[in-house]
Each structure stands twice: as C-alpha cells, then as structure tokens.
Design a protein around this nucleic acid. Structure first.
Length: 677
DNA sequence: GTGCACTTCGTTTTT
DNA sequence: CGAAGTGCAC
C-alpha cells in the first residue's frame, strides 16, 4: 500500500523536530514504522541510534514486529523500541553507578506502594486517620505522590510541608533504603538524572540520533522533560499524537504538550493526517460529530473514502444483564451469518466491573471470550510469592520480599516475631535478614518463635547455597519442592480447579526462569539472579495478554482499547453515570470536578475502534447494591450523535428491527447444535 | 498464631 | 449482592 501525501511528508522530514497530528485510524503506526525503516535505509542512521517510545508493551511489541518485517530480525533488534518505563529502566540500570542505586533494585508495584504508605501513615502520622478511612487516605496519598512524580517534583521541591509531603519524603527514603523503586520512579529518576548530570545527559543525547514518540498526547511533564533532555544534542525527533484521544489526564498526561512543543521548538514542522482508513462513513460521522463538542488545540476533520456501511445501532435494554445477554445474542447471530472469527468482535466498557455480567453471559453461551487487563499473571498471589522467594534468595537484604515469604509456607512466624525483627533492625540499622542472624533478636522470643525463625534462616541459607555453588538451574527446577510451596497451595486453596491453576502458574514461572538460565533459543545463558531480575522487573510492567492470540471475543475497558481496532464493536453502558462516569461529572459531591470532555474523548476512542459495524447499548435501570432497581438515563453523548447515521431501538423494540433476523438465526443455530449433540 | 464468622464498605480509568 | 477486612474463639 502506498502512503498518501501527508503520510509521505511525515516520513520524509528528518532534519528537525516534527509533530504529526494523526487522527484515529489515519495510519500513524504505519508512518512511524516506515519512518524508522527510512531513517536506516535512506538516511543511513545506525539502528542502535534510533529510539522509538510508546506507552504500552503491546504497542511496542507490535511496532517491533512491523519493523522486523521490513528490516529483518537482525537489524530491527538493534533499535531501541520500548515503553517510556522500560527506557527509563534501561537507563537507570546503565547508570546505576552515577545514581547510587544498586544494580539489582526491586520494583514496587501499586500494592507494594499502598502497603508502604499505609505503614508510614500508621507509624508516623496516625492523626490523619481520625476522621477518614485508612484506605481512602492511603489511596489519596498514593495519587498525590504519583502526581508529584509525574510533575517532576521531589519532596524538597514542594514548598508547603503538609503531612502528605512528609509521607512522600518518608516513602522515598524507605524506597532507597531498601534499594527499590516504584513504577513512576523509572521515569522520574531517569529524568532527574539527565537534568542534573551533564555527563550522563551528553552521553545519552548524543547516543540517540533520532527519537520517535507514539501517543504523544499521553506524555506527562516528566516524560516531556525526559524527551527534551534526550533530544537536547541533535534536536531531531518525531512525535505523533492526537489530542482527541487524550484519555490519561488523570494520571498526569498533559495534552498541552502538543502546544508547548511549538513554543519550545520554533522550527517545529507540523503535519496533519486527516484521512481515516479504518471506519465506514456512518461510524466516522458519529465520531466527528461527537468530538466537535470538545475544545481543540489544533483543528482537524477526519474524512474517509470507504463505503457508508451500516448505520450505528443504539439499543436500549431494561437491565445490565439484559444488555449482556443481548450482546451475546447479537454476536452469536452475526457470527452464524458471517462466519467471522470470534476475535473480530470486541466488547468495550468504561469500568472493569462492567465485565462481570458479560463474562457470565458469554460463559453461558459457550462463546470464548478474553478479558484483557483483568488480573495479570504477575499479579497472582502465587506468582508474587514465588517471585519474592526468588528475590530474597538473590538478595536476602530485600526486606519487602523477605517479609512476604517469611511465613510462606506457614511456619509459625507472626506479628510478634516480626515486630522483634523490626525493633532489632532499627537498633542495629540493618536489614531484617541481618537482624534475624543477630543473636540479640532471639532474647525476646519464646522458644517456639526462635525455632520457627531459625527454620526460616536455615532454609534461606540452604537455598542461597545453590547460587553460591553455581547450581542455578537446579535451584530453579527444584525450588517449588525445596520450599514446599505446592503443599502450601493445596492446603490453602479450597477449590481443586484453583489449586491446579496455581500449581501450574508456579511451574510456568519457574520454567521461564529455568529456560533463561539454560539460555534456550539462542539467548545467552543467565545466572539465577539475572533471570529473576529480568522476569521480576521487566515482566512486571507487562500486563500479560497471554491468550490474546486465541480466537475469542475481546473484552476490555475503553482505556485498554486505545490503539486497537476491530471489525465489530459493541460499546455497553452508554448511560449517564457510566459514560460519562459519575465521578467525572460536575456535581456537588465532586466539588470542582468537570471531566466530561475527557469522558467524551473516551467515547470517541471507543467509537473509532470500529471498522465495519458499531453497536451502542444501554440499560434503563441499574440494580443497586441493596437490590433495589434504580432508573437511569441514557448518556448525553448519545444525543450528540447525528440522527441520520444512527438507528435507535428503544426498550423492547429490537425484535422488530433490522436485526429481527437474529432470532430466527439463533433458532436455526440452536437446531444445528442440537442435531450435533 | 490460625481459622472462622461476622461486619463493613463500597464502584474509574493503568504503566 | 459480593468482596475484603475486622474481631473473636480455638
């Protein structure tokens, strides 16, 4: 396929900073990948001097895939194609000396952070818990800390010393004390390093000759600064973005960065991509009309040369369960008629909780469905347990990991013993492990506790022997057995199915580590430590989409759908309170909040995922938690759609519509099924 | 220190 | 209604 004029221009301009305003479905990924290839083949930039940054691992993987098709795996593997977070991680590892951070630092996930904040608040600032629930306080502080980090603010940069700032300070102190970083730190610390250390900045900004950024509207202040430092030497880069698809303001994204760019780089070249290659005319008309209700930084209008297609269907159901059932019926009938693959269908929703009735309906209908973004492999307790074991074996001074596994499997170490360890650690200013080895600690313990603690230390020492004696692979292969983890799972999981899944998960994890140690498929063999580090750090950031390739109906939040496209899209929950979400509306409870524009962009993202057919669904009553049904209003966004491009089916009328065929189709399908069974 | 039964509380979006 | 957290009894 040929590039259109605007796309070609975006590819060809390589002499300075370039901003590509790429509407939904305008082929931006193609522009980026073509440009990377062109930089190497036409402009003779070495692959390793090109850096392409995205926001999700999925997007990075896809980009690498496409570049690989053009350049072959050898040259493409030299290019840095990664997320902002992995890029930060790489730089931090490379610069660990300049940073004073150990080579194998620990990465705290969201829940680790919550736990730490909770401990700090409980211990140092219990006064703020008096009229608020602990959970709320912890979550609010976590949000604050995240906001500060995405705004490039260290605790000492904040003038007002509120309690929250003091928690932030203690939080950072604790992280560095146990040689750890959280997700935000990967970018935050990198940016600070480049800002404050000229040698490091010069090194990296001359190393990368050309930088490309996808989904630029999602960059936050810290990421923008990072980009500026990385390009400070050559000032050659391309950023691609669309302010209409900015849906991450809540985590610090600043779509104004699009505007700021033309101030910071006066010679910025701006190119607009306005031809949409994805959706039919009806769908695109809906999208355009909807988004015209928002303010815009740059004006652009998407157009398409594709066929008109089918009108956008809007269907009203009584309850959320009816809505879920209807989606399943429609997909069943449609698939029966067209023989499409299941993965051609996507069901999108505003919040994760909306997936429940859908999942149930799909299960009942025996239609395979894949819920993306739910709980990932690396968030499963058994995986976190096992990974903590691995971490503590590599580095017994890792208090966080040690604390997690000290009583797993149960060996009778409880609060009392741990408290004794903590006070000892405080007294000698060392880690929990060193405290456990210290004879002082046992003097406050009763014999049973001493014995339990002793058993743990002996076990840990025994496991460490494997590494010290170079028996890394044996350790990975025998670890489950050595710590008796399977017996623990069996004893603590009620359902047989769940037990088997957990045992299998642990097996998978350890086989990955084992494979990394053995150096399968041409990779260089790693030590146990390196293998654990690789899985523990890098993979934690990658929310696993294991069954993504399987043929299954795709279910995900609107946020997760960005960057993807599907032939047939169902968008459920088109109700006031769901989309726009009630927390985003300017009501008395949400004082000062008005995020309706962002909610509209969310709807826009959903609509523009559809290639051929789009169905919007809504329920008219919602069952509240006490079981009482409550009336609910259609989303304001539905009224903003052009009537001539939609077909509205009010409550109870679907059977009389153009989809009335579905019923006979289903009957026929059922008959066929019955005859098979 | 562990396990059970009871309460409480709550519902955005994620690297 | 359902999950997660707390308190109480072994």
């Amino acid at each position: 396929m040929q590039l259109n004029q605007a796309q070609q221009e975006a590819v060809d301009y390589v002499d300075g900073p370039c901003l590509v305003l790429a509407g939904a479905g305008s082929g931006k990924t193609r522009v980026i990948t073509t440009k990377i290839v062109s930089l190497i083949n036409k402009h003779f930039i070495a692959p390793q001097q090109i850096c392409a940054v995205t926001f999700t691992n999925k997007a990075a993987a896809e980009m690498r895939d496409r570049v690989k098709q053009e350049l072959g795996s050898e040259r493409s593997s030299l290019i840095t194609i990664s997320t902002f977070h992995s890029l930060g991680l790489n730089i931090l590892k490379e610069e660990s000396v300049a940073l004073g951070l150990g080579r194998n630092f620990t990465l705290f996930d969201q829940y680790d952070s919550f736990k730490l904040i909770k401990d700090i608040v409980r211990e140092k600032f219990p006064q703020i818990l008096v009229d608020n629930s602990e959970k709320t306080v912890v979550e609010e502080i976590a949000t604050d800390i995240s906001t500060w980090k995405t705004s490039l603010l260290r605790p000492e940069d904040i003038a007002v010393r509120t309690i929250r700032v003091q928690v932030y300070e203690a939080y950072q102190a604790y992280l560095s004390a146990c040689n750890a970083a959280d997700f935000e730190d990967l970018i935050f610390k990198t940016t600070l390093l480049l800002r404050d250390n000229q040698a490091v900045r010069d090194k990296w900004s001359s190393y990368y000759k050309y930088i490309l950024v996808d989904e630029y509207q999602d960059t936050n202040e810290t990421q923008y600064q990072l980009l500026k430092y990385l390009t400070s030497k050559n000032k050659k880069f391309t950023v691609v973005g669309d302010d209409d698809q900015s849906i991450y303001a809540w985590r610090g994204a600043r779509p104004e960065n699009i505007k700021v760019l033309s101030n910071d780089f006066p010679d910025l070249k701006v190119i607009k991509l306005e031809q949409n290659y994805r959706s039919t005319q009806h769908i695109l008309n809906c999208a355009n009309k909807l988004i015209s209700n928002n303010e815009h930084i740059f004006n652009k209008t998407l157009y398409t040369k594709s066929n008109v297609g089918k009108k956008v269907q809007i269907m009203e159901l009584r309850t959320q369960n009816d809505e879920a059932d209807r989606v399943v019926q429609l997909i069943l009938a449609h698939q029966f008629r067209t023989h499409s693959q299941w993965k051609d269908y996507a069901v999108l929703y505003r919040s994760n909780s909306q997936s429940r009735p859908l999942e149930k309906a799909f299960r009942e209908a025996r239609i395979p469905c894949f819920i993306s973004g739910g709980s990932s492999f690396f968030e499963q307790v058994e995986i976190k347990d096992m990974l903590s074991w691995c971490r503590v074996i590599c580095n017994p001074y890792d208090d966080m990991a040690l604390l997690r596994v000290i009583n797993i499997p149960r060996r009778g170490i409880g609060h009392e013993t741990i408290n004794a360890l903590f006070s000892q650690a405080k007294a000698i200013g060392k880690s929990l492990y060193e405290s456990a080895l210290n004879p002082n600690v046992t003097k406050d313990l009763i014999p049973r506790q001493k014995k339990s603690l002793g058993e743990f230390v002996i076990l840990l020492t025994k496991l460490r022997q494997y590494i010290l004696n170079g028996k890394d692979k044996e350790l990975a292969d025998e670890l489950t057995e050595l710590i008796g983890y399977n017996a623990y799972i069996k004893a603590n999981t009620d359902s047989k199915v769940a037990t088997e899944i957990k045992i299998k998960n642990v097996k998978i994890l350890l086989s990955w580590i084992s494979d990394l140690i053995a150096g399968k498929k041409g990779d260089t063999p790693l030590s146990f430590l390196e293998a654990v580090d690789k899985l523990g750090l890098r993979e934690m950031m990658d929310r696993k989409n294991d069954d993504q390739d399987n043929d299954a109906v795709q279910m995900m939040t609107l946020h997760a759908s960005k960057g993807l496209e599907f032939p047939y899209v169902f968008l459920v929950g088109m109700e006031e309170g769901s989309l726009p979400h009630k927390n985003s509306l300017p009501t008395e409870e949400n004082q000062g909040v008005d995020n309706v524009d962002e909610e509209r962009r969310l709807a826009y993202v959903g609509i523009t995922r559809a290639r051929q057919e789009l169905t919007l669904l809504l329920a008219r009553e919602v069952t509240q938690r006490n079981g009482v049904p409550d009336a609910i209003h259609p989303s304001r966004f539905l009224k903003e759609l052009p009537a001539e491009d939609t077909e509205y089916y009010p409550l109870g009328t679907q059977a009389k519509t153009s989809e009335e065929q579905y019923k006979s189709d289903i009957d026929e399908a059922l008959k066929q099924l019955e005859s098979i069974l």
